[in-house]
Simulated scan of single mutants.
Amino acid sequence: MSSMQQLLIIEDDARLAQMVAEYLGRSGYAVNHAIDARTGLNLLQDPPGGHRPDLLILDLMLPDMDGLEVCRRVRALPPPLGQVPVLMLTAKGDPMDRIIGLELGADDYLPKPFEPRELLARIRAVLRRRVEGVAPALQLMRFGSLELDRDARSVTVGGRPAELTSYQFDLLMTLAERAGRVLTRDQIMEAVRGRELEAFDRSIDVHMGRIRAAIEADPKNPKRILTVRGVGYVFAKQQD
């Protein structure tokens, strides 16, 4: 089995994809490229050599299918395949594209045009969350009917699985580990992503909304993740 981390790029600009693949290849990654959405989805589910990608780089604008639809289909796949981290490439950095992509389950975004070094930094940050997610603390955390399993990177509510992306799982763990402590958005971003990347506050809010939808009985009136106006978020110690 290959020890190199596997990346899948779904990008219709062949020249850009080749440049990115060569750059990432020199940085120690094994890269596969798909020119369109359907080929990319096939490669994701039936990868060469059986090596599932550790991360998907997904262009928003594809000739045969909208990148947002691709992201939606990826997240609909059964785990662990449907939990693959997704880094979305968005044209011109349109804020609405970013927000919609995050709502659909993308872990990060990068507007075009971009510097390959920034892409590499973001890839490393996303993958670092995956490989460093297990800390020497309780592997299984319970808060009433909510259960978080570090090893399995899974969340259940009342015994039923809650569907979260890799990034959302890390956000939830960051809050749960500090239950009762109010965290600012910057503190959350530093804990989850590291200092080298620029924080985008609204992305935290979007992800928190998705987490609440997955774990709260009534997401509009949350009991687990509470908003502290003008400050950030707090994970409630006392729950059902």
Rank of each mutant, 00 (worst) to 15 (best):
V157Q: 01
G67I: 07
A135D: 10
P113K: 11
M88A: 06
D94C: 05
M96Q: 14
L183T: 00
D97F: 04
D107A: 10
L102E: 00
I100L: 00
L102V: 02
L87G: 05
G93Q: 03
L89A: 03
I188Q: 03
P80L: 05
M88Q: 07
D151Q: 15
P80Q: 05
L89W: 01
S145R: 04
G133L: 00
A152G: 15
L175A: 01
L127G: 04
G158Q: 02
R98D: 07
A137T: 04
L140Q: 12
Q187R: 04
T156Y: 11
L104E: 08
V86F: 10
A125P: 07
P95Q: 13
K112Q: 08
E69A: 13
M173T: 04
K112V: 15
V192T: 11
P95C: 07
R73C: 04
A152H: 11
S154A: 11
A106I: 04
R117H: 06
V84N: 08
R130Y: 03
L68V: 12
A135S: 08
E103S: 10
R142T: 15
A176H: 08
L68K: 13
A191T: 12
L119W: 10
P80C: 08
A191P: 15
A176V: 05
C71N: 04
P116T: 09
R150T: 06
T184M: 08
E190Q: 13
P111T: 10
L175H: 10
G105R: 02
V84W: 03
T174W: 08
L120Q: 01
P79V: 13
R72C: 05
E69P: 08
L172C: 00
G159V: 03
V157H: 00
K112E: 09
L148Q: 15
D186N: 12
R129Q: 11
L171N: 00
L81I: 11
E132L: 15
M189F: 15
I188E: 00
L138F: 01
R128S: 01
K92M: 11
I99V: 02
A191R: 13
R124W: 04
T165C: 04
K92L: 14
Y109A: 13
M96N: 09
E147F: 12
L172H: 02
A162K: 03
G158W: 08
E163V: 10
V70Q: 05
I100W: 00
R129Y: 00
R73H: 15
P116C: 02
L81P: 09
L183P: 03
A91D: 10
A125G: 02
G101F: 04
P79H: 09
L110C: 14
A76M: 12
L138A: 14
S154N: 07
G158C: 08
V134N: 07
G105I: 00
R98M: 12
L120K: 06
E118N: 09
F114C: 07
T165V: 08
L104W: 05
R178V: 05
L77Q: 03
D151H: 13
E103F: 10
R129L: 01
P79K: 15
T184V: 00
L183A: 01
L175G: 00
S154C: 10
L171A: 07
I99K: 09
R178P: 03
R181D: 09
